[in-house]
Structures are given as C-alpha cells and as structure tokens.
Amino acid sequence: MAEIIVVTSGKGGVGKTTTSAAIGSGLALRGHKTVIIDFDVGLRNLDLIMGCERRVVYDFVNVLNNEANLNQALIKDKRNENLFILPASQTRDKDALTLDGVQTILSQLAETFDYIICDSPAGIEKGAQMALYYADQAIVVTNPEVSSVRDSDRILGILQSKSLRAETGDEPVKEHLLLTRYNPTRVTDGEMLSVTDVEEILAIPLLGVIPESEAVLKASNQGIPVIFDETADAGHAYHDAVARLLGEKIEFRFLEVEKKGLLKRLLGAK
C-alpha cells in the first residue's frame, strides 16, 4: 500500500514545491518508487522545478476527465527511474478537482507506487483541502517568521478536522515540521524565530531544517531538485529529512552559525 504524503503550508512561497521535488527525489534515490502530483491546478510549477516542462502533454485534469490515461500523463524523471511526475493543468482552475476523481487517481497510483507526494497549493481553500484529504502523512513547510508559523498552525487544524482520516475517526494524519529558509545568523541577531520557538508554537515533531541557500534558487531555475546538488547544504539537509521520514534517527545540522576559517575571513567569502 502506498503512503500518501501531502506537502502543505497554508502560506505561499515558503518552499512547498521545492520541498515536494526534493523529498520526492530523495525517496526515489533511496530506491522507493515515487510519484509527485502537482495539485496547484492553474499555476503549474512543479514541472519547472523538476525540469520537465517541455515534456508535459497530458495533465492531472485530463486524467480526471478521462481524456487521457494515467500512463500518458505521468512523466518519468530523466535522472532517476523510480521518480514520476503528474503535472497540473495550466488552463483549468481548482474547481476541476473533485474528491471522487482524486480518489480514483490516487488508488490507481497506489497500485504501482510506494510513495505519493501531493504538492499542495497555497491557501486553505478547495485546492489545498483536495491535496490533503487523502493524506496519511503531512509535511508542513514553515519559514521561521510569525505569519508563516500561524498559517502552518491553521493548516494543521484543517488536517485534523477536514482530512479523510479525521472524518472517519481513523488514526490521525502524521504531522512533520519542515523548517525552510533557516538562517542561524539572523536567528542569533533576533531577526528570525529559532527552531525551538517554532517547535514550541506548532508542537509537532521536527523533520528537518533547511538552511537558507543560494543553491535552492539556482536549482529551481535550472530545473534540478536541490537534493541532487552534492555541494549544497540545503541538499544535505533534505537528504537528512528524507532519512528521518523513513524512520532513521539523524542529528540536526545547520542549526548553528558556521564559524568562518581564517582564510575565508581574509578572502571575505560568504
């Protein structure tokens, strides 16, 4: 049985799609057959981050409307054979989604995949609720600032009241906190909330802390998930998060201000 994981946040621009791409790729790199679904109908982004925008022929909504079958719409990743993408439609809106339609697609995917990653749109409306409804687990992406934390709290409330598991009284959706754009220097300066602050407010287990990194923007623009970048801190942090998602115990990195060596200081490198 496939595990359905929703990547959600409430607030926009905090790194949901980046995280979906990285976590999905990370699971695939570890040999798990994984599909990432873009639920952001109307604002297709995942294909860009994954670098497969030129290969989109059919999309999620086409499959929902029986205009194409799943195999036609699924795009196989060029870097890893275990990784597939189901792109969103650019020309439709969220009303094209129905719970029954989504369920049909998810149960078909569950036959062949180990992990189904649902990349949720921002907000708490229909699109976001569709993305989280059938989830077994949720990765709540949060930036270390107050409005993002509050929106995450809101979406956690929706997960525990409007998901299938909540409605049927099943075991609740397993929640994970992923803190992105973390900058230890700014935390020390008091400009950013610390990991402990966010953990205390949201009171859910921490899955990972992704340091603020130029590599993330670069990776997005090149269409290569940052987890493939062996030199980036952010890539390593996502690898750690994937390992924790699979149940491994790994110590948290990149939480402290990095001490610059003498040479770095002299050269003024960042």
Binding site: I124, D151, D153, R154, G157, I158, Q160, S161, P172
Partner: peptide
C-alpha cells in the same frame, strides 16, 4: 486532547 489550532 489534541492541540486547538489557529482558526479552530
């Protein structure tokens, strides 16, 4: 017994 979240 669960946290009462923002908006609830």
């Amino acid at each position: 017994s669960r946290p009462v979240r923002s908006g609830q």
